[in-house]
């Protein structure tokens, strides 16, 4: 036992010394990273334009993210796609027919949602174990569900947000990342008050987008926080576990409130290394 303990201690010291020694002589920082994330979450939606009831969507999704870091600057581009079934727990499972004697169908609409984004951040501080960044994020989020209360339900939101990221390094392999976003101006398209999108010689999509309105923080609130733990697996790859939460409130044409709780498991590929002595 004593021998095993001594061997482990020696191996630990050797490994620790090697890492420490290596980090003191030369550092290699990745200049870019590509992240693939599997997402699983729950959206809770209370949109009085569609229904007085709260709908839950348990969804799965995929996120792709490319980040470029150079000096004090970080650029980010990303894509996300998610889908899940919408259920109103208070109403249970409902089977409808179109007419007496007709075939029945369960009213469980599918929701498809996703986003495309681009962002820029500049470092506020870059210490050995702590980094913080402040910047902007431009993203378009689209939601579509066919059959919510037997109607089409859709929302499109192009928003510019302030984004702050805080990163704490715990040794060479562990990182804790915190991220906060707050939209400052958005162009938002929702189903109109009448719930009808119909214009001559125009596609419904075009007519829907034509209804977009510019809105700012006094009408649209959507704070978003994300915390992540990242473990460096190897020189070129890391694993990341993250949790994100966002809450949205918008009042036109009728109030909509929405929350998302989301877990993500990511694989990060680091590349374009630069040597720092």
């Amino acid at each position: 036992m004593n021998k095993l303990f001594k061997s482990l201690l020696a191996a630990g010291c050797l490994l620790g010394g090697t890492i420490l020694g290596f980090s003191q002589t030369q550092k290699e920082n990745p200049g870019a990273e590509l992240t693939v994330t599997y997402l699983r979450g729950t959206q809770k939606l209370h949109d009085l334009q569609a229904s007085p009831m709260i709908y839950f969507t348990d969804y799965n999704g995929l996120n792709l993210d490319y980040k470029r870091m150079k000096g004090h600057n970080r650029w980010e581009f990303g894509l996300e796609a998610k889908t899940g079934s919408m259920r109103a727990p208070a109403l249970g499972e409902r089977e409808f027919q179109f007419e007496e004697g007709g075939g029945g169908f369960l009213l469980i609409p599918s929701q498809y949602f996703g986003e495309i984004r681009a962002g820029y951040q500049r470092s506020l501080s870059q210490r050995e174990n702590l980094e913080s960044y402040l910047g902007i994020s431009l993203r378009d989020q689209v939601h579509y569900a066919d059959g919510l209360a037997m109607n089409t339900w859709a929302m499109n939101q192009l928003g510019l947000a302030i984004r702050y990221t805080h990163l704490v390094k715990l040794g060479t392999r562990h990182q804790i990342i915190g991220d906060v976003q707050l939209p400052i101006i958005s162009i938002i398209a929702r189903m109109p008050y009448s719930n009808v999108v119909s214009q001559p010689e125009k596609s419904q999509f075009k007519t829907f987008l034509k209804e977009s309105t510019v809105t700012t923080a006094h009408e649209l609130q959507q704070p978003e926080i994300r915390v992540a733990y990242r473990y460096r697996l190897a020189h070129r790859s890391s694993l990341e576990l993250n949790y994100a939460y966002d809450w949205m409130h918008y009042s036109k044409p009728q109030p909509i409130k929405k929350t998302n709780h989301e877990l993500g498991l990511s694989w990060v590929y680091h590349f374009q290394f630069s040597h720092i002595n």
Binding site: A50, A88, N151, S194, N195, V196
Partner: peptide
């Protein structure tokens, strides 16, 4: 056009 609305008890009305 006749969009649909949901009632609190789960009925649908057009």
């Amino acid at each position: 056009d006749n969009p649909k609305w949901e009632l609190p008890n789960g009925w649908i009305v057009a």
